[in-house]
Structure formats: C-alpha cells, structure tokens
Amino acid sequence: MALLQISRLSKEYLGGTKALTDVNFSVAEGEFVSIIGPSGAGKSTLLRCINRMVDASEGEISFDNINVSNINKKNLRLLRRRIGMIFQHYNLVNRLSVIENVLHGRLGYKSSIKGVMGVYTEEEKQRAFEILNKLGLKEQAYKRCDQLSGGQKQRVGIARALIQDPKLVLCDEPIASLDPNASKIIMDHLKNINKEMGITCIFNLHQVDVAMKYSDRIIGINNGQIKYDGPPEALSRDMIYSIYGTEAGELITD
C-alpha cells in the first residue's frame, strides 16, 4: 500500500481559477519525488492539498490509510504533525532563537497551554540539539533567526520539520531563494534525511537539473494536469519543453 494516494484530485479557487484538474498519482514510502512545472501550474496548490492547507474541490487523498479529505479538526492536527513542511521563504519567527524555532515543530504534540507557554520536555530539547548538530547548526542554536544566512535559515526550517518525526516532508521550492552552494547543501541534507531516516520527500522545484540529479521520480505539471510521471532518466528534452510549454532550445536547464 502506498503511503500517499491521490485520485481524481481537482481544485478550483473562488472566482473560477482551475488550479488542478484530475490529478492521480501515488507515492510509496521512502520515495524522493520532484514536481516540476512552470509558475502557476498548480505545484504549490497540489502540495498544500496533501496537508489540507488548501481544501481540494474534488477527489480523494489518502495518507497512510487515512482519508485526508473528510477528517475532523482534531484529527487534522494529528495528521499535520506527521507531515513536515519546508518553505521557500523559510517562514521562521525571526525574533526568536534558532532552538525555539526548531521546537515549534513539537507544538502539534503538546497541549494548548504548554504550547502557549513554550514549555518543552528535556527529551524534546535534547532531540532538537541532536538535529541541529546533524545539520551543522550547533553553534547557532541561541542566535536569533534574523542573524542567519539564507542557507542556515533553511536548515532551521528542515530541523523544525524533522523534530515532528514526520513520515512525509513536503518541500515548497526549498532552494528557490538560495545561491548554488547553499542549494547543494540543502539538497544533500534532504537526500540524507530521505536515505538515512527513510522519510518520504515530495518537492516542488524550479531547477530541472536539480530535480534530475536528486530525485527517484519526477512529476511534470502544466496547467493543473500531470504531463509526465516517471524516472528522471526517461524524461526527454522534448518532454521538458512540453511541460514548460516552450519551443525547444528556449530553456535554461543546466
């Protein structure tokens, strides 16, 4: 049984914009999947439908044998804490320290009061430091997040997702705001997490070459529909052009 099963998923925003049309695919546990496609193709919407940050109009999503579509509010919290999310703009609380931001990933496991007061157990704090150490951020633990570089901020974002003990990590353009070197560090960390900890990763990516290099599987989306779903080796140049809707030779791919 696949970890994530998406069938006949459609999303129409208020005002009639069709973001997704009849999307079907499934992801097995431990897969490293990239979703590529032009801006506005519906990649972000697709990712956000999985953890219900966006409500789908039609279709079904099941995650770990739970039907995500008609889940109540309490169970939605339980679902979300098992799905980590990483963002293009890191989305950290800049005025708090690195370690506090990492521990935010545990809020889903806490009672409201403890979360409000920011009370974490010693085990959680220890785990947070282990993760930071692994990501090479031990020295930065007590720095405020606005003192970090982009690459460091994204690593804090990864740490926040990891401390949730997720089965699946959704990455929305994780390297779109980073320089090539920081991008490589981030992608290597994510690949490690996938290999060593067996966490399934689904990526939105703009960089086709990065997607080809790192992923086990690539899904190409254009205009809300899946154009390609298969291994990176089988993704031809013509296919890439058709995903991006351009003529051959007009893309910067490497």
Binding site: N91, V93, H104, L107, G108, S112
Partner: peptide, 17 residues
C-alpha cells in the same frame, strides 16, 4: 502557515509566532 502546517493550535500560533 508554517506553524499551522506542523499541527499547532490557534492559541499556540498566537503566542509562539
């Protein structure tokens, strides 16, 4: 959005972010 996606409740989001 980030805290909501990690399963935090409304009050937790208010006081932590």
């Amino acid at each position: 959005e980030a805290l909501k996606a990690s399963g935090a409740s409304w009050w937790q989001i208010v006081f932590q972010a």
